[in-house]
Simulated assay, not measured.
Amino acid sequence: MTTAAKAEYKALTNEEAEALVKNLGLISETELSVSEIGDGNLNLVFKVTGVNESVIVKQALPYAKVVGESWPLTLDRARIESDALIHAAKYVPHLVPKVLYTDSILAVTIMEDLSSHTIARKGLIESNAYALLARDIGIFAARTAFYTSDFYLHPFEKKRLVQSFSNPELCKITEDLVFTDPFFDHETNDFPEELRPDVEQLWSDAELCREAGLLKYQFLTQAEVLLHGDLHTGSIFVKEDSTKVIDPEFAFFGPLGFDIGQFIANIALNYLSQHHHSQEPFNRKETQDKLLKTIEETWKTFENEFSRLFREESTEPFAGTDGVLENLLEKTFTDAIGFAGCEIIRRTIGLAHVADLDSISCSDVQHYLKRKALKLGASLIKTRSSVTTIEQFTSRVRGA
């Protein structure tokens, strides 16, 4: 990987993205084609292709595409994303795309092409199962967390990394869209009028809003480990024998349970959506059972791997004290359940929805399942301390 500086920022055209790849010699072929394939909210994404080789050129825009230039965003998130991928590659190189080039001025990262994979959300909506997904995400979350925690790093190195991954603008998006706006009558919220009675009931639930506020405070203040920060099924590429975590531009130091909570929430939303997407009853049950097993295996893999690393590699003197690991994992699990509840609610009535539910063409069915999601999310937030095992969590999802 090399890093270069350009004179000034400008949004790339297809031709400029192609020229950049040619000039860097990242593809040896001379005849290339390029297309802009980005469908996200924050970036341009170009695929530059030869006959036998291809790469992805990702460029941050100085505003949110979903809103427009009235919502400016820092270009430094491109540096944070590439640094997070490079850092993760130290510990889970098989679970992230290889970074080939970065340019902090152009806010560009060039990385390996993952066209042989499918976005996990799309594959799961189609009722596909991926045998490695749960284990890989559990390993990813455990290793990237432990190796950036105070249990492993020298305090000076930990604090240096916290500064390097300070990400206030992207964190503010999460603070607003996940933890704040969905719990108030805010203009960013987006839901059909048919759901208004359910949403207004949520807004008026004092216990729910108090507990959501406490979870937000944890997000704001607990710089425990380096997080992906946006670990949903749209940020994961999958195929039968491979999992790749992408798009860590929201990376920052936060509470240990946050990434796991986001991931299991999105699997839970897909579970609900399968009431529609899996039309045949037997196939539906099989698909939904596999989704619940994915949730359970993800947590158990995370717990086992984090515990192994904690016992074998921790440098903190108190790590050997009885109860330290157990209490940490208990808190992390409770937090993850609460964070999952917030994610479920915000993906249902907030600004950024999920295709799992929004792709359901029958509005009556979509609204019915979204009501289920709102009730599930609210219940998880309010009663997270009483959910003490991952099986209890999946039982809640099954009973939603």
Rank of each mutant, 00 (worst) to 15 (best):
T109H: 09
F333H: 08
D176C: 03
D322G: 10
C171G: 03
Q288E: 09
K98Y: 03
G68R: 12
N23S: 12
L215N: 02
K6P: 07
T294K: 07
Q274R: 06
N189H: 05
E53V: 06
Q279L: 07
S379E: 09
L351Q: 11
K159D: 06
Y368W: 13
K65H: 02
L75Y: 00
F250Y: 10
Y368G: 12
V178I: 15
T174P: 07
L42S: 06
E29K: 08
A268V: 05
T2K: 13
W71N: 04
A373F: 04
L220Y: 03
K239Q: 08
F263V: 08
G257E: 04
F310G: 01
A336I: 04
Q288C: 00
K122A: 10
E36T: 10
S204F: 10
E69C: 04
E286A: 14
L85Y: 05
F250A: 04
K65W: 01
I80P: 00
E249I: 13
P97W: 12
D335W: 14
E240L: 06
R77N: 05
L161D: 07
H94M: 12
R77M: 02
I267T: 11
L291H: 03
I344L: 04
H367L: 10
R346W: 07
L177N: 09
F151S: 00
H117I: 07
H94L: 11
R284K: 14
T287D: 10
R210P: 02
I260W: 08
V324Q: 08
R347F: 01
H276P: 00
S166L: 10
N52Q: 15
T332M: 11
G338W: 10
R384V: 08
S278E: 10
E187N: 15
E286M: 14
V67Y: 09
K372Y: 05
T287M: 08
T388F: 01
S115V: 06
A212E: 00
S235Y: 03
K158G: 01
V66D: 01
K90E: 15
L376S: 00
F318M: 15
L73H: 00
S164D: 12
T394H: 05
F282Q: 14
T3V: 13
L272M: 06
V66S: 08
T118Q: 13
E126K: 14
L328N: 01
I56R: 01
P72M: 14
T298Q: 04
I37M: 11
I119M: 14
T332S: 12
L231H: 00
Q201E: 14
E280R: 15
F46V: 02
E312V: 02
D190C: 08
H367T: 15
S28H: 12
G68V: 08
P155I: 02
P93S: 01
L329M: 07
V238E: 04
L95A: 09
H228W: 12
V57A: 05
L132R: 15
